[in-house]
Design a protein around this nucleic acid. Structure first.
Lengths: 219, 219, 219, 219
DNA sequence: GATGAATGAGTTTTCATTCAT
DNA sequence: GATGAATGAAAACTCATTCAT
């Protein structure tokens, strides 16, 4: 404010403006790595702080409490998820999210492992449950829209309502997400390829089906 | 199934032999209730002891440590699961496990919540992971056999290999199991009925499909 | 239980039965000393534990939490208070509690100092407030009965209702209790003697007052 | 009373001189509100800063440390107190401070709660004790002078020395001040009226008393 | 003058585990 | 066999204070 050379002031001299958000992100990153490695239950603020190179107090300075930290973490995870869905919608491909999922398991070792634990925790932390309910609803809504589109274009079977079919796809994704961290060896790229291909077969239009309507009758 | 010295367990001749096993079971029962109610993270041995009407020391007397207790709990949960599968096999109905699942959510409010948290916990304790891997493999093997049977009888589509189709069914079940405790309100009986009916449609034989083989082609 | 010499078993051999209460008292004693010396705000469970020669965990073993410890402490303080009142009632002497108070300040350096801080804390800990309200009501009720008796016997002025007069006496006692720990030097035995003697004068029957009724008119 | 450079305080010539004092006052005001609402123990400098709309650093900028802030707060509380006494002296009415007290409980919900906690705190911080001792002595001195005057005018009993009688009045006031925040419901306006009226009766001249001297004999 | 990020020691509380009895 | 007292390390969180800017 009272310094004389304002050039290059950001992040080197003077009060670092807007640094707060950056620091929060840094901590979130550390948190997601710690949770990915050690699990939610074993992830203490101490460990997060240490991992980020801060003291414990610093963490609670940026996040009022653990809950707030984890909620922020969840939101950011869902943000990434939404981005994936967005590109899926653009391509009009139902299976795109699953394809993305394959790529994520390949690269990022820290995105998925935490997720299922965080979800499981939602049962006891109302704040978590709120985030989950809200963002999951959005996720299902988006995917359902894509499914409906595909049904109308005739690339997806329409004897099951988009709504229900979406729930099934989502459940399958959740199931894989849950098991992947526990038995990563089972999920080889080849196996995942086969699973997704089979999924394509499952949702493919049935020969001799009519365009509109959704008829769900027990076999 | 539990042990073979169930006979003469009552205190007639000398020390009751099956007593130990019975008390362990009581403790396991208490443990699953505590976990269902308070969550895995908040389930301390003290609470389990109190819930079972035992002393603190008794828990560590009957189980060397917490890990042993939880492993035993997991095994017993999978035992129940296997029983469900067994009846499915008898009826030759792929969807029977899902039907059982509906009934479990109706009655026992304590089975699934504990289970999904226990699974989520598997990532960090190798002992847990071992149990999960072993019992899940068995679960998939059993279900795959049922699927294969059904395919051969022509009641299930055979354009997807039994193995892969099983994985998809299992994943779907896992996904629902995971979400049910978090958003129970979404899983109304009516909704679950619709989901399972749609599942039947999904796996139903496709008109004009040949008997053998499994062809997986992208739509 | 399975030992063979039961004599002198208590507190030397075998499971110490009933020791729990004794240990709790020991901890309460330590707590009251720590609070007396360092004040309520600075009295941590750590310090209490150390003072009693226990670990921190032991304190929370005997008292579920700090609140429970302090509530127990308050109750025991009021118990002593009640005993004082009881003897006052037997002697029919209104000022007896004040006399006892003098003796307490002389001997016990740990009884009073804590009290006013504990009372002040009552505003924020509902559990404390409950104890205070309940026990104070009892204290006032007992003292009021003594006052009424004395009024009827003609040894105390009866132009002020027993109820109101009691409130005034109690307030005076509270006021001294509050200030004594802060300015102990002001409360010399001689001074306290004078204050109590003056109190006797204040409550003495007014010359020419009639026996029954209570007339309170502004001078 | 505050400072002598109140003139030209507004930013007309150079830096506003009285600014510092004004900001300190604002912070003190915030502090007393926070203490009144949350209690002394829970009143952190952070909360005070937030309440006043200042930054954390500002508090430690205007007050070297917490002690200094609290001491200033005490002094300002006693300033208010003195003002009350001053008007009492003008009216020559002993009970005036008590009347003022009633009015304060009616209006300002924040003055007394903070005060009694502040006093209770005096035992541990020598700096606090010093303020209390000094200002209380002044308070007693002022009230004693009023009492003495009243005794000489014959409106207050003179069989108890002004000094002692003052101590009793002060103690009574302290006792009420201490209990009021804890059990506010007991102190209805009607009840307080009755208590003060009875106080008037208590200190009223005794029929047939001689003018000078103070005779204190046990009843 | 004033800020607010960061510290580090402190608090209460929880808990699996040990072990003398 | 079984108890329950006691431990000690860990957790989340609070806060007065410091200090570079």
């Amino acid at each position: 404010m009272d310094s004389d050379d304002d050039i290059e002031q950001v992040s080197t001299r003077g009060r670092p403006v807007g640094d707060r958000e950056a620091k929060r992100k840094e901590l979130l990153r550390a948190a997601s790595m710690v949770i990915a490695q050690e699990g939610y239950a074993n992830a203490s603020l101490r460990k997060v702080a240490k991992h980020a190179g801060y003291t414990t107090g610093a963490v609670t300075y940026y996040f009022a409490n653990k809950e707030e930290l984890v909620v922020a973490l969840m939101e950011s995870a869902f943000d990434r998820f939404d981005a994936m869905l967005e590109s899926a919608r653009e391509r009009g491909d139902i299976l795109a999210p699953f394809e993305s999922w394959i790529r994520l398991t390949d690269r990022s070792t820290r995105f998925w492992p935490a997720t299922s634990e965080l979800l499981a925790q939602g049962r006891h932390e109302p704040a978590f449950a709120e985030v989950i309910a809200r963002r999951y609803a959005r996720y299902r809504r988006l995917l359902a829209a894509i499914v409906k589109d595909a049904q109308e274009r005739g690339t997806v079977r329409n004897d099951i309502s988009a709504d229900i079919l979406t729930d099934q796809l989502v459940a399958m994704g959740d199931g894989w997400m849950m098991m992947y961290p526990i038995e990563p060896k089972r999920f080889t790229p080849k196996r995942m390829r086969a699973l997704i291909d089979a999924l394509a077969v499952l949702v493919a239009p049935v020969p001799g089906e009519q365009k509109p309507g959704g008829r769900a009758a027990r076999a």
